[in-house]
Nucleic acid binder design. Structure first.
Length: 294
DNA sequence: AAGAACTCCTGTTGGC
DNA sequence: TGCCAACAGGAGTTCT
């Protein structure tokens, strides 16, 4: 489901038809998604030009020419479909006419001056969109308490050790806490722990020594997190079941998970010979190899 | 106050 | 073949 790498891929896919373009017309097909749309949502967007499109955690951020920011979250099943002529080829995938779907879950439609029509489709409606006034992001409730970017320079073994201090939760729960690191979801939490050869059940206290300094485990984790995410972005983002790239085509990473969704299969680590196991942690599936993840 | 449980939603899947 | 419960999980809210 869309986690940081998928959102990054969507961002790159939307940029060619959104950046520099004007919202000619915005249509809402329902009053809200997970949350109600802000008052005058369409009116505040129409005739505004998109100055920049970026990603923060799992959010897409479109900065408008009047300083407002359109923040979009894909939730579980959110996706953007691009219709229209002259959609350029960008990055991975071929951006073709996306006539897919019966339109039943198309909740928001952007008609752009670039000639593209962008539909936001979200069957489960866990996604949301909101408008934030100029310079309002830092203190906005959705962004105020977000953790650091896992691909940024702030992610170090020392950071992990510091944030682990005084906590009792498992490594899996720690990775999923958006107040620590922002952007990792259930799938990549599993993959990161596998790469780092750390058990999802291990307590976060293992990241810091008695003197509070980073341990070997913290260094392995700090290395595995950006490595796994960067690999996924390079592969064009993962796609499971209902997830599609912005062009409507499937992503490429869905078969390259080492442990996620591989219950009962042999651990892919050379010479391990263990079996991938599924368990439930905090109500979510965790896949790991008990043999090599300690 | 940390951390776990609950909740929203609907398409898909598996068991009988 | 059909029916239905279980499952998927991001993240805010509520509970312990």
């Amino acid at each position: 489901m869309p986690e940081l790498p998928e959102v990054e891929t969507v961002c790159r896919g939307l940029a060619p038809v959104m950046v520099g373009a004007v919202f000619d017309r915005v249509e809402l097909r329902r009053a809200g998604l997970r949350f109600p749309f802000p008052r005058d949502f369409c009116k505040r967007l129409e005739e505004r030009r998109i100055a920049a499109l970026s990603r923060r955690a799992k959010y897409l951020l479109a900065v408008l020419d009047d300083g407002q920011t359109l923040a979009m979250h894909l939730g579980m099943t959110g996706r953007f479909l691009i219709d229209g002529p002259a959609v350029p080829k960008v990055g991975v995938g071929t951006f073709e006419h996306a006539a897919g779907g019966d339109g039943r879950h198309d909740h928001v439609v952007f008609a752009m001056s670039s000639g593209a029509t962008i539909r936001y489709n979200d069957a489960r409606r866990f996604g949301y969109m909101t408008l934030i006034e100029a310079d309002g992001i830092a203190k906005h409730p959705l962004f105020r308490d977000l953790g650091i970017e896992p691909l940024g320079p702030e992610l170090t073994a020392g950071f992990l050790a510091t944030r682990a201090h005084g906590r009792k939760q498992s490594l899996k729960a720690f990775l999923l806490d958006q107040h620590m690191l922002a952007g990792i979801g259930n799938i990549y939490a599993c993959e990161v722990l596998y790469r780092a050869q750390l058990s999802p059940l291990k307590a976060v206290s293992a990241l810091a020594g008695a003197d509070g300094t980073a341990t070997t485990a913290a260094r392995r984790l700090a290395k595995a997190i950006p490595a796994v995410l960067a690999d996924a972005i390079a592969a064009g983002g993962s796609s499971l079941r209902d997830y599609r790239q912005t062009d409507g085509s499937l992503g490429y990473f869905q078969h390259s998970f080492a442990v996620y969704g591989r219950e009962g299969q042999v651990c892919p680590r050379q010479g391990c010979g263990g079996m991938v196991t599924r368990m439930v942690q905090n109500g979510r599936s965790t896949f790991y190899c008990p043999q090599c993840q300690k």
